[in-house]
Design a protein around this nucleic acid. Sequence first.
DNA 1: CTGCGTTTTGTTATCGGTAACATAGTCAGG
DNA 2: CCTGACTATGTTACCGATAACAAAACGCAG
Lengths: 359, 359
Amino acid sequence: MTRQKKAGPTPASPAKPTMRDVSRLAGVSTMTVSRVLADPSLVALDTRERVMRAVEQLGYVPDLVAGSLSSRRTNFVGLILPTLTNSNFADTAQGLAEALGASYQLLIGYTLYRGGEEERLVRSLLARRPQALVIAGTLHTASTRRMLLNADIPVVEIWDHPDAPLDKAVGFSNFEAGRAAARHLLSLGLRRLAAIGSEADGDVRDARGEARLQGFSAALREAGVEDGTILRHGAAPVSYGHGAAAMSLLLREWPDVEGVFAVSDSSAFGALMECRRRGVEVPGQVSIMGFGDFEVGRECEPAISTIRVDAKGIGARAGELLRALFEGAGAGANALDLGIEVVPRGTTALRVAGRQLET
Amino acid sequence: MTRQKKAGPTPASPAKPTMRDVSRLAGVSTMTVSRVLADPSLVALDTRERVMRAVEQLGYVPDLVAGSLSSRRTNFVGLILPTLTNSNFADTAQGLAEALGASYQLLIGYTLYRGGEEERLVRSLLARRPQALVIAGTLHTASTRRMLLNADIPVVEIWDHPDAPLDKAVGFSNFEAGRAAARHLLSLGLRRLAAIGSEADGDVRDARGEARLQGFSAALREAGVEDGTILRHGAAPVSYGHGAAAMSLLLREWPDVEGVFAVSDSSAFGALMECRRRGVEVPGQVSIMGFGDFEVGRECEPAISTIRVDAKGIGARAGELLRALFEGAGAGANALDLGIEVVPRGTTALRVAGRQLET
DNA sequence: CTGCGTTTTGTTATCGGTAACATAGTCAGG
DNA sequence: CCTGACTATGTTACCGATAACAAAACGCAG
């Protein structure tokens, strides 16, 4: 039952039917078949039915490769993300796919946080002639920028809020997110504060996580708080295990830390569990703040205070923006800031148990 | 700075360069350019350099749409999954992408567990003329099966272990996974057992989760244990919140349940957190068993006992299989069973605290 | 210097559709 | 019964690459 790639003298399977075959069977020209499939209202009812019967009978599936070449519309949209193994980015992808609708096909590429990978991905996606490109991040090599500008298609930078977008942008300020996290911890009266993130490792770096750390630092400086630590541990992507390891290090170095901001809810969750294993009370002894509003942080106990960003919304808005552009809509704002929201939950709850009320 | 789609009388941007332009600039034929890009060793060194210079100078990016049509190789591989917002499936996608390598582009489609969606997706992916299709699940409509067989490309069914694979299969038996979960709980001496999963809701159903529930039931029957409940709650996909809600219902109906199997680690985690909120001790009062070996279950406290399946491995093996087929390798096994593994962790730890030692 | 196998490059004919324009029919109004 | 505005369908010419075959240039033994 194995199919052979190259059949012998007698072709094993009849060649896949083309529009030509359909047109012959229906007794019409290929253009008529094309019309029936693209816009049936252009074709008389009985002809249309004859064509559809032929399509059915042959099991004809149109060849969009040929169609795209001819019409110069591929209906592809390229999407470049650091990784899909992160619920936030997966949400963005899903949001984008849904907003674009069934007629567009997403071409997804992963950089795995490697800077050099972006250029390769852009080149390889552009070769598929997508009608737009959506890219997480705003850091591009000169040659990447050149390719993007030359491509003459809309480019949407997401998950960030660049001062000077290449073209369009949908996201938020990661710097402000880190700043807001620090302020929230400060507002609770906490002063011995730390942040945990990842370190740059050769080509691998999480620019957005780093921006959040910078924002965190800035807020401490603004508040005149000297007592802060930024712990950069391990390489991106950070996840549960990363948070646990970092928290473990942090507690060893600085046992009386009062508040911790993790650049991602995954990390925050790992940190929380590490505290639990060590008998460190949260929020009793240490308050924890995450980022991203991942489901795990909402559902765990205590629930993790976080900075909410609308991951799915970023994809959805980018998709809507593109659809508008495809339909010829004009400019509109170039950079859309979806903002952030501080979501206080259990891990930074006010400490009413006497022992911790004074600070 | 907005680019216009249709330029006015004078074209705003010079038309994107084609291979023709490169060939003229380099003073060679298009075939030579094509060769330089496809297999440089076929072209003399100085010619090659001249061509490369022209490519650089024009910023030429080859058009794979045209190339695919001509060569009849798209280097696309279609992938159909219920959702990407599930770390297991995201892992599978990543494993597949990595195994296929940079020269193949994945075309991902989501069914969101809707049965009818599969047919639409298969049709729309086949229209892109992929060189192979990878599909989660083994349930297909008659017309889907026909399209798949007609397509004359390898088809790999994953995440299951069908008796009669359509073509190739890489996965494991979900029935056995449920069975193993029940047996593990039974081996701890527990008898009042329950399983939580999702219910079919119109077109939306999780066939693999259901198979695990069936396996669970079967094991109880085999062991002669009457005291079992299968709770089907909510619609797929199940997640943290689902587990919490189901556990809540379960505890209300059956307060003295001793062991719970959740069809997914996400659910199991939600159930665990719900127990924590209610002061129900795990594993003291209730043991919990999940499925999938998600990172959240490994890192939480207590860690969740689970049935491990190698999600990334499924993608990787499917990718390797396809690469072998593309390179003309022959048959090989049609169905690959990657098996399952019971991973006992904290949520089913032996209960040494006197009060629970007898059962 | 000739001949023959290699190496290097070019020519021609598609691949399977769609855009743009051309051409029959159809029908209402005069 | 003719004309003009539609409606329905067909013809022709690509879209931008590559496969397959052809031919020219080169190198070296004899």
